[in-house]
């Protein structure tokens, strides 16, 4: 592909005896957003560090902006920018001072530094607080300033390593808006995330990484189609209730779950539309079964992993973005 700005082939990396990457292959095309989606420890950050020349690789090869990340590391650095998981800002300096320093180090021509910094502060909505020390900024403001710092040099490829981890939903949405603006300006974006929702929102293509291997690649819709659909889950009192539900919905009830458990859960497939969910609820009520609790579940990162890798994702600190409705009823 001639328009590829990142090409990685068979990346291998071990820390001591522990293999972290076991043959990662990826392509990012010009103007595209690629999300590397996976749980903690899957190898996302290691991949980003290799591609941004911060880590040497043990095997395989990679080019970024047409330059080899090992042989032409200095050239690669002139065309990329990295905004890492940890905010890379001086807390005791102001927003303005932080960006001015990065602008100078990024070789922005001296006479343009001031204008460029002002433009970016404005772009990320921090012009009003530019004179305040970063220590007084909220988490969301710090991330936005950090993103601005990554954009100063007008990189051809922007690497964002888990840009919204730890942010509240509102700040996350704000940051997504910013990222969309950046991509609309023509920057190619290599994003890592552990949130399916984030990949869904931002990415043109998603690469699912697990245990150092890319398990699946495709658009969000392609992956979701492989994962399946939304489900209404019913927590029931006993096996008899489970049997009644299954009999009432023979086509859409899952038959895999264990109904002999003390309080079985039965899932009903749905397209997630209000009409269909209402229909299901009416159907459940007509059987006379009263679930202890129920919820509507969208496919989650866990489901994606369960389906595509055959085991659950281990991301204990990740919230459950797929849980859209939860309702408890007295049993």
């Amino acid at each position: 592909m001639t328009d590829a700005v990142v090409v990685a082939e068979g990346l291998h990396k071990s820390y001591g005896d522990t293999p972290v990457l076991r043959g990662v292959g990826l392509t990012l095309h010009r103007g595209e957003v690629l999300a590397l989606l996976g749980p903690n420890g899957a190898g996302k950050t290691t991949t980003v560090k290799i591609l941004s020349t911060l880590l040497p690789l043990d095997g395989g090869s990679a080019t970024v902006a047409g330059y080899d990340v090992v042989r032409d590391a200095a050239q690669v650095r002139r065309h990329i920018s990295l905004t890492g998981q940890q905010v890379a800002l001086d807390l005791k300096a102001t927003g303005l001072e932080n960006l001015t320093m990065i602008a100078k180090l990024s070789r922005v021509p001296r006479r343009q530094v001031k204008a460029r910094v002002a433009e970016l502060l404005d772009g990320v909505g921090l012009a009003d607080v530019a004179g305040r020390r970063v220590a007084t900024y909220s988490g969301g403001m710090r991330r936005r300033l950090d993103l601005a710092a990554g954009l100063i040099a007008r990189p051809r490829v922007l690497f964002l390593d888990e840009p919204t981890t730890g942010l509240d939903p509102r700040s996350r949405r704000d940051l997504w808006e910013l990222v969309r603006d950046v991509v609309a300006g023509g920057t190619s974006l290599f994003l890592t995330t552990q949130y399916l929702e984030e990949a869904d929102e931002l990415a043109d293509r998603i690469a699912l990484i697990d245990h150092g291997v890319v398990a699946a690649q495709g658009t969000a819709d392609e992956l979701k189609r492989r994962v399946g659909q939304a489900r209404v889950e019913l927590d029931l009192a006993d096996a008899a209730d489970a049997l009644r539900i299954r009999t009432a919905f023979p086509d859409i009830a899952d038959t895999a779950s264990d109904t002999s458990a003390a309080s079985p859960t039965v899932a009903l497939a749905t397209d997630g539309s209000l009409a269909h969910v209402r229909e299901l609820i009416a159907g459940v009520e007509s059987t006379g079964v009263v679930p202890a609790s129920w919820r509507l579940r969208e496919p989650t990162l866990d489901d994606v992993f369960l389906t595509l890798t055959g085991h659950a994702a281990h991301a204990p600190d990740a919230p459950e973005p797929g849980t859209t409705i939860t309702q408890e009823k007295a049993a």
Binding site: K49, R77, Q86, A88, I102, L105
Partner: peptide, 13 residues
């Protein structure tokens, strides 16, 4: 130990 070192090292500095 902070994020600064990664940013500085990914710059042409």
């Amino acid at each position: 130990s902070g994020g600064m070192v990664d940013r500085l090292r990914s710059l042409p500095t």
